[in-house]
Design a binder for these strands. Sequence first.
DNA 1: GAGCACTGC
Length: 661
Amino acid sequence: MADLPIVRFEEKIIETVEKNPVVVVIGETGSGKSTQLSQMLYKRGYAKSGMIAVTQPRRVAAVSVSRRVAQEQNVRLGEEVGYAIRFEDRTSEKTHIKYLTDGVLLRESLFNPELNQYSVIILDEAHERSLNTDILLGLMKRLIKRRHSNLKVLITSATLDGGKVSRFFSDCPVLTVPGELFPVEIVHISERPKNYVEASLKTAIDIHVREPEGDILIFLTGQVRVFSPPPPHCRRFIVSTNIAETSLTVDGVVYVIDSGYVKQRQYNPSTGMYSLEVVQISKVQAKQRAGRAGRTRPGKCYRLYPSMVYHDDFLDATVPEIQRSSLAETVLYLKSLDLADMDILKFDFLDSPSMESLEDALKQLYLVDAIDENGSITSLGRKMAELPLEPSLSRTLLEANELDCLSQALTVVSMLSAETTLLPAPSKSSEKKRKHTPSNLPDGSGLGDHIQLLQIYEQWYQTDYNVDWCKENNLQVRGMLFVRDVRKQLSQIMHKIAKGSLDVQTSKRRRDSQQEYRILRKALFIGYANQLAERSIRHNGYRPLGFKSELVQVHPSSVLKPDEDGMLPNYVVYHELIVTSRPFMRNVCAVEMRWVAPVLAKLEKLNVFKLSGGSSQPDEQIQEVTLNVEKKEIATIQSPEGRDSRIQAARERFLARKGQK
DNA sequence: GAGCACTGC
């Protein structure tokens, strides 16, 4: 075993684990907790009745840590020591110590809720509070009380508030293991700068002039750039986002400049919108950033904020992801576990999401038929939960299977899973700037971005997955290969849950495209019933239905085309609402007027009080479902096929009810 | 007519 600080605490750790079902281990960076705890427990026979699982929030960590442990154990990776991440399971019957991402462990617990294959579960890096880790914490709390076979749970983290986790687990013991960091001197500036980018550069130059050698790591909110090794006798300036807090270790850093800010994605359950905001970091993050200066020798951290701001203004810990995300997928997952005496609104989270966020999730699940009007999971919902997708997309796949366009839907859904990597790669040379983005790529036939994604993938398929074709068309190769992997995985799961023979083959022939696209759009419409927007009568602004009224625009990058009069479709479904300079719908798909009525009717009779199993406060049952249509517009709006009396009737009933309030 | 931090099944 390696000579790490944690090794000196072996007896104490084993003794504590022996006596307690749950133990919290606080270990600073360099303590060796990620590699040593599993080996200690293995040595003491804890893997006799099951494997020792160690979860990681990131794939690379699961792979690299397991590789090190295999080396230390002197075994081949994949045998006694292995790992499991999405698309890759390197374990065997021999495996005693298994590293896996927290997402993989959640998937496993869907099929084996007691997780009987494991005798020990170590949740590593719990301080990061990833959405998946938070769900696992809640599940572990239930499991240690209910599982028939013996289970030991260890929760390890760098700077987690041990007391809080201990209270959560009925005052379990907390062990603290020192790390192997060098001391870091903290310097606060006396006043917050107006421009922190400028201030950080000034500070960097200052360090360069006055301080001895050593690289400088600067934490800003954008512009990731970690340079390659410098020529000798040169000092590196590394500008980074929070990626260098965890995922990335840069050797040679002695000085850290911390702007005190981070860009964070936030979900607003009342509007259904995501926004990316620059917010103040937490104390935990500030400590993490400072620690990056002490990895190779004593270092210095310059904080571009007064120490009073740090003490009085900064939150102790970062707002956990579970309080910043849409929870439809999470709630569906928990519902599908069929936990005994489980009320979803009262699930025991370390930090509970808001009632509003949970109710928003229930509302969305109801609209995509995953739960019924009483909040019970449907058989459809159970199948949806088996797919590693957000509910809109899993619903689309199941509907597509019914409508006989599964193959196309699989492609679209997989392309959406790699959304960001798919966007045209940043243009390499500035000379090409004048040229428009290559127009060789298909345009979705004017029907929207989903159809375009389908067409792009089908073209790639026709080149036999040619990598050069991707490059020529400004598509990110890694993204496209990822899409192919996702598509394969989803096909396999569909085979399993839908039974029978399915057509999942990517299409080469050109049938009647318009008809084919129409059926696909219908499937997308059913899947995105929770993400339907209605166009304003006079202009091309839309209002998302079922959320607090806000005017949104189709994102300029969309390929959706207006008609001869310059008007966009009366209704669209969208993949995402994102607020940047203004609220935008990203990835939109044209839908037909005649499809819309049943969804409007469903929106109308939405009753969150019932959906939540009647457990929310009576005051909260008055749900503000706004159909977002102004009265004067209702009188005039007509569908292209003529008046759709059902839509009209649904609207009128809704407005009448609203008028009564 | 925009411009986006980081993960994961």
